[in-house]
Design a protein around this nucleic acid. Structure first.
Length: 464
RNA sequence: GUGGUUGUAGCUCAGCUGGUUAGAGCGCUUGAUUGUGGUUCAAGAGGUCGCCGGUUCGAAACCGGUCUUCCACCCCA
């Protein structure tokens, strides 16, 4: 009995068309990573559990895919643990490895392990899949690609400036207009918490604030109250709920509000420096805006927090994010090394481009010339021609069997091939070949002895 | 992890309060067309109705479980 095949929830197969489009995005991101001077590394798909567990908070731990030990792993569990049936004590005994949850923590591990051979400041990029045991939704998968660029060993805020330029360069080349690069700073958030007297509740406070867009000021206040933030404290937040206007208008409100907090003032200064410097270096095609409600990744970000929102006309969360973590490698024993980085969510960028129809029309021209097959002798001549076209870098192929011409044409149509070449008995005899333009239907005859005439015309028309 | 939602031909979907042989469009195959695709016409192939169980004389339809899809939480790219 044949079993009905399936793939795990939240995973996907990719068709040739999809892979082609994914590679298009992938290559543009990669190109700009390299233009900005980043070097590639790769790390294993799975890490030792203790490298990952505890680095993303309780919620993160829940979403890490654990790998069961090999062998007779249950036998090695002591009776007490076994009978207790408690996940948190049992898991470490039967699982010592886990799938990569993001690229940042493995990178921190990499830096610590290779600290003696790394030439600091180290700018690395990494484009690999990560796995999360999350419940899938649109734009949310259990296996997806992240494309990260990070710098370690550089404290300067100029890094942040460059990352904003990098985001902008990628989205500009992808033709994606209307993205919003949102900027915040943990010091600002900490400053606010300090000013309202809720330092201890920083995380709860920011998580609630993060929802302002979504659930509105009233519900945010309710959530804050539920988390134990006093009514007095919440009242002091009032300026934030109505914060709007240009970046400089927002900065001056924040400056005022945080004047009594040293840390908060520092954060405002940093925001101001980044925004001013980006402005001086030239215009961005994306929007760059301050957003004090932005609070992702707070478990390790210590300074800048960056998040990229998809254009407003598409329903997609963030398509990228990043920030600065002053002491990320500290958790692996290397202190005093600052890191800052950004990430592109490849799968989400893909979905946005698809929804807006922004992939180039020619992207699925995976074959540029198809030679039809009229029989054994003709096919040999056609393969000879195909071989020389390939040497010119043209994506060329010969139909593998002498099927009905109608069928071969249909195949060419479906493959989106712009040119079909016919070498039948007549052409073989006269030492010529006929090129049919599939769009216009025009047919031109060329001499076999001079394929370059066709190649030149082809290159002019296709443009490469 | 909580609550909801979806699943019928390769694809998109109809299928009435349970009733005989489960349909359409597109796609596919063949022919009109033995060297010319997209258009047209004709014919044809293709279905464990997601899976398992239950109710019933009778289930694609009702009930339970399970898997999957999408959505809202949680959290996140």
């Amino acid at each position: 009995m044949a079993q009905k095949p399936s793939i795990p929830k939240g995973t996907r197969d990719f068709t040739p068309q999809e892979v082609t489009k994914r590679n298009y995005v992938f290559n543009i991101i990669k190109k700009h990573f390299e233009i900005f001077g980043f070097q590639p590394i790769e790390t294993p798909s799975f890490e030792n559990s203790d490298t990952l567990i505890g680095k993303y908070g309780d919620e993160g731990d829940r979403l890490i895919f654990k790998i069961l030990n090999s062998g007779d792993y249950l036998n090695k569990v002591d009776e007490h643990t076994y009978n207790a049936k408690d996940v948190s004590t049992m898991t470490p005994k039967i699982s010592e490895k886990a799938l990569r949850y993001d690229l940042t923590v493995p990178f921190a591990r990499y830096v610590v392990m290779h600290q003696n051979e790394i030439n600091f400041p180290f700018k690395r990029y990494q484009m690999q899949p990560v796995w999360r045991a999350d419940r899938p939704q649109k734009g949310r998968f259990r296996e997806f690609y992240q494309c990260d660029a990070d710098v370690v060993g550089a404290d300067s805020l100029l890094q942040e400036v460059e990352f904003i330029q990098l985001y902008d360069a990628v989205f500009a080349e992808l033709g994606l207009e209307g993205v919003n690069i949102k900027l915040n700073n943990r010091k600002v958030l900490a400053g606010i918490a300090e000013v309202i007297g809720a330092e201890d509740l920083l995380i709860d406070f920011t998580v609630a604030l993060d929802k302002l867009d979504k659930i509105g000021a009233e519900d945010v206040k309710k959530e804050m109250t539920a988390k134990g933030i006093s009514t007095d404290s919440i009242a002091k937040l009032e300026p934030l709920f109505t914060l709007s206007g240009t970046n400089s208008e927002q900065l001056s409100v924040l400056k005022n509000m945080l004047s009594s907090s040293k840390e908060g003032s520092k954060g405002v200064e940093e925001l101001e420096f980044i925004i001013e410097t980006v402005k001086k270096l030239g215009t961005l095609s994306a929007k760059l805006s301050i957003d004090v409600t932005l609070a992702r990744g707070l478990n390790y970000y210590t300074g800048s927090i960056i998040e990229v929102a998809a254009p407003e006309n598409v329903d997609m969360g963030s398509i990228g994010g990043g920030g600065r973590y002053d002491n990320l490698t500290g958790i692996f024993g290397l202190n005093g090394v600052s890191g800052v980085g950004i990430s592109f969510g490849l799968d989400r960028v893909y979905l946005v481009l698809e929804e807006l129809g922004l992939f180039p029309e020619t992207i699925n021209q995976t074959l540029q010339v198809l030679c039809l097959n009229f029989g054994e002798k003709e096919a040999f001549a056609a393969l000879t021609l195909t071989t020389s076209l390939r040497k010119f870098g043209i994506k060329a192929d010969l139909y593998p069997s002498d099927a009905k011409i109608q069928k071969q044409f249909k195949y060419a149509n479906n493959r989106n091939v712009p040119y079909v070449i016919l070498i039948g008995g007549k052409e073989l005899e006269d030492n010529i070949f006929v090129v049919k333009n599939m769009e216009t239907g025009e047919q031109i005859t060329y001499a076999m002895s001079n394929t370059e005439v066709f190649v030149q015309k082809f290159k002019r028309e296709i443009g490469f």
